[in-house]
Nucleic acid binder design. Structure first.
Lengths: 112, 112
DNA sequence: TTCATATATTCGTTTAAGCGATTATATAGA
DNA sequence: TCTATATAATCGCTTAAACGAATATATGAA
């Protein structure tokens, strides 16, 4: 019911902010996130579920993978500002995006 | 150092959101806040100090009162959107503003 | 100096949430 | 069917933070 409060609680953890920053780029599976952020599988999964419960992200199963993507609606548009105007000015989040691209490139190469 | 994370942690509590909503109207002393929100003095003080440590508000002593006001800088502008576009659409926060005005009116009357 | 008021701090308790390590489940492919 | 991979869930532990109640501090006024 107190949707905004749930959203704000979900935003009050650095790992979840880093995950959201990645999902602002594109839909990703759990393993993309653990590889990019270099965190454990359990940690990635736990935080993604927390974000899902807060209705900030949604998931979609395909084969053995679970893909997560943003589920940000009108009511929480301030998160756009948080990500674009604040987080992405910080080195940590910039590096995460770089690492994401590197990882996705490596991943694609292995499939050719 | 991780200023944004501190700000977000400060925003992840309903009482502090209600206090911020009031401070978006004007500078207030602790007793204005406890009267308006009908919370204990200790609770009001504690949460104001939390907001101050997160650098979202600043304080100013005058006689026996401590006045708190916003200290929102450019970097955390997304909070403006949170308050104006989100919180203030919710009945709870609208009622708080009404109660604030009622309280300030009563307070002024007693001084005439 | 004494008292009342405003605010902050401390204490003890409770709850939420983070973590690593481990285990369970589901799916794909051999 | 058997095995490997991807993901989720559980366990035990630790820490942060919320609360009410009580106490301490500071200021102004009598």
């Amino acid at each position: 019911m107190e949707k905004i409060l749930d959203a704000l609680k979900a935003l009050s953890d650095e790992t979840r902010l880093r995950i959201l920053n990645l999902l602002y780029e594109k839909e990703l599976c759990v393993c993309d996130i653990m590889e990019t952020l270099q965190i454990s599988q359990a940690k990635a999964s736990r935080h993604l579920i927390y974000l899902k419960n807060a209705e900030l992200v949604k998931d979609r199963k395909h084969a053995q993978w679970v893909y997560y993507s943003l589920a940000i609606d009108e009511r929480i548009k301030f998160i756009d500002s948080l990500v674009y105007d604040n987080l992405r000015n910080l080195e940590l989040y910039q590096n995460d995006l770089q690492n994401l691209n590197d990882w996705l490139k490596r991943k694609t190469m292995n499939c050719e």
